[in-house]
Design a protein around this nucleic acid. Sequence first.
DNA 1: CGTAGTGTTGAATTGAATCAAGTGTCGTGG
DNA 2: CCACGACACTTGATTCAATTCAACACTACG
Lengths: 267, 267
Amino acid sequence: MSNQSMNGFIGINSKQPASVPLAGSGTQSAGRPCPQNPGVSCSNCRLSDLCLPISLNKTEIVQLDEIIERNRPLRKGEHIYRQRDEFRSVFAVRSGSFKSYLLGADGQSRVTGFFMPGEIIGMDGIGSRIHGVSTMALEHASICEIPFSQLERLSHQLPNLQSRFFAIMSNEIVKDQQIHTLLSSYTAEQRLASFLLSLSARYARCQLSPDRFILHMTRSDIGEYLGLTLETVSRVFSSLQKKELLLVKNREIEIKEMEKLKAILCE
Amino acid sequence: MSNQSMNGFIGINSKQPASVPLAGSGTQSAGRPCPQNPGVSCSNCRLSDLCLPISLNKTEIVQLDEIIERNRPLRKGEHIYRQRDEFRSVFAVRSGSFKSYLLGADGQSRVTGFFMPGEIIGMDGIGSRIHGVSTMALEHASICEIPFSQLERLSHQLPNLQSRFFAIMSNEIVKDQQIHTLLSSYTAEQRLASFLLSLSARYARCQLSPDRFILHMTRSDIGEYLGLTLETVSRVFSSLQKKELLLVKNREIEIKEMEKLKAILCE
DNA sequence: CGTAGTGTTGAATTGAATCAAGTGTCGTGG
DNA sequence: CCACGACACTTGATTCAATTCAACACTACG
């Protein structure tokens, strides 16, 4: 029930080691360059069919390419931007993963989202021109920076890009509404199940295994995101493991019973 | 901490009885037509400075006007659209109020949002082309329908409109993230306080009293929105009344101690 | 090797849900 | 106009899921 628009389980699992640099990014036939590599362009990025460029034609993608800045990679713990920074750009995740979070009145942190390759970060700042949250790399990661004023200008020239960006923002709204219903009516176990299924589907989207993956966030991050304490997160993992739906070894997760996990959401 | 971008408490407090639209509002010589009236156009709509037209110039507003369909008013309980309907348009609230909700796997309904005059409904359908929720009038109400394909076409011609719509969608994302943090870390009392303060600010935006208003939704609607049961909602209202922060008479609310109500959010 | 950060598990506590009984309010039709 | 029924709301008693508090284990890293 949780991800109507994100469950495109791709069968292909191209098992490409996540770091094969292909310097002279010319030949398509030789395989696409690793997204870690700053020399990549949208035209030959492995993620181009999940990311902004969907539904753009080749010449449009070239134009998009020109406004995109491929920043240096970030180390674990580094920030893309911080709460209250001026908003200038949105960012596409090229590799690695991120969390967005904010500090409440009491100084407690609250996680508002996790981001994986092909996903767009920072759209909450567009209206207010201020970032409402901080966004931090959960592991070694790289991003494409898209200066928003230029994106607006280009969207104005390319109706397809305008459409695409409207759709991306709309999907973000849908995702947030799903979290809303999750938080307002699901039990701890249902929240965790839904969270894992969402990660699973997103890993599948990036051609990674949907049933074996690493959690790059802490139990506490997950708890703050799902409105639970870290102890509860840990307990539910243990319980799902005891029920043999899951195999949990530290941050490694293996989903053993995908269907049963989905069934939890309907209880 | 819940509404950083929505707490624009406008000083003006036109002490009108709760929820009565100001018929011939203010200084505009003869007064602007009542928004109930389908003959209204954006150029002379009382809400034009809250709604889509913000930051558009006069000729742009005229163009916007041409694509907007002013539908017949809706009676309490009538739907604008239902879950799974094809998405064609977004809607601006002209008068009255609405709730959006969806039915979960178990048949239980979950409220995802309330909408007041000047607010935009239906943006969750843009990406998927399907409405993910149903939207129903909570009282006699009227809306402007904005066919989305035409809005996209016009946005392409008017950079200001494109910008404006990006900003509106971004604000929706911010609002949803605020709900996320509210649901994941606030107590029942904090949720209700935040909810009332949000309504209050939004009434102020429409020139209605920020401290005396009618709740057009049921206790159950509020509970479904805030992730509480209707009994808890009722109890918290009673308790806030006993503490003399609030006066509650059925659906009428009077906020007696705005500052103390805000203070609850920082506890 | 030691230390800080991260994770697990148990026991006690608690805020909100559930169950239950009753009152109040509104709209309808007699 | 009043009586009726349906729905909305309030309040109390009890239960329960998740939190809190606490102790300890694991891992990773200088």
